[in-house]
Simulated assay, not measured.
Amino acid sequence: MRNPTGRQLRFGAELRKLRERAGLSSTEAGQLLGIKQAQVSNLEAGRVGVSPERMRTMATHYDCPDTGLVDALCDMTGERSRGWWEEYREILPTALLDLAELEHYATRLRTAVTVHIPGLFQTTDYAREIFRQGVPDLSPPDIEHRVSFRVKRQAVLFRNPPTPQQVIIHEAALRMRFGGTRVTRNQLTHLLEMNQREHVAIHVIPFAAGTFAGSGQSVYYAEGAVPQLDTVNLDQSHGPVFLDAEAQLSKYRVTLDRLEAAALTPEESQNFIHTILKDL
Rank of each mutant, 00 (worst) to 15 (best):
Q39P: 00
R159L: 12
V167A: 12
E193Y: 01
A112D: 06
R89T: 04
V48W: 02
G6I: 14
Y126W: 03
G34L: 03
L97C: 10
L229C: 08
W84P: 01
A38Y: 10
M76S: 12
G46I: 04
V241T: 02
R146I: 00
T189S: 11
R108W: 00
D142Y: 00
E79Y: 08
Q154N: 11
D75W: 02
H238Q: 13
H203Q: 12
R253N: 00
L138R: 06
N3H: 07
T60H: 09
M55K: 11
N233P: 01
T184V: 00
D230T: 05
N42E: 14
Y252N: 02
Q236H: 08
H145W: 14
P227V: 07
P118Y: 06
M1T: 11
V48C: 00
E260F: 01
A172V: 14
P140G: 13
P65R: 04
K251L: 04
R159T: 12
G224T: 09
L259A: 12
W84K: 03
E90L: 09
R128L: 11
A201W: 04
Q31M: 10
Q122T: 02
D71E: 14
R132Y: 09
E90N: 08
A59V: 11
L96M: 15
T255C: 02
L120V: 04
M76C: 14
D98L: 13
M176F: 02
R132K: 15
D279I: 02
D125G: 01
N42R: 15
G210H: 12
E87W: 05
R47H: 13
V232H: 03
T184W: 08
L264F: 01
A225C: 03
I91L: 14
E267D: 14
H199I: 07
R21L: 05
M1K: 13
I117L: 13
Q37H: 10
A72I: 08
V241E: 03
T231D: 06
D244P: 04
H274L: 02
T163L: 05
R54I: 06
I143L: 10
F272Y: 15
L280F: 04
R80H: 13
G216Y: 03
R182A: 14
L188N: 04
V200Y: 09
D257V: 05
Y62N: 02
G134S: 15
D98H: 15
V135R: 08
R80E: 07
T123F: 13
E268H: 12
E223S: 12
R182T: 13
D98K: 09
K152A: 14
L32W: 08
P206T: 08
Q236L: 11
R185H: 09
S25E: 04
V167H: 01
D279K: 09
G214A: 09
S250I: 09
G224Q: 00
P93H: 13
Y220E: 06
D137K: 07
G34I: 06
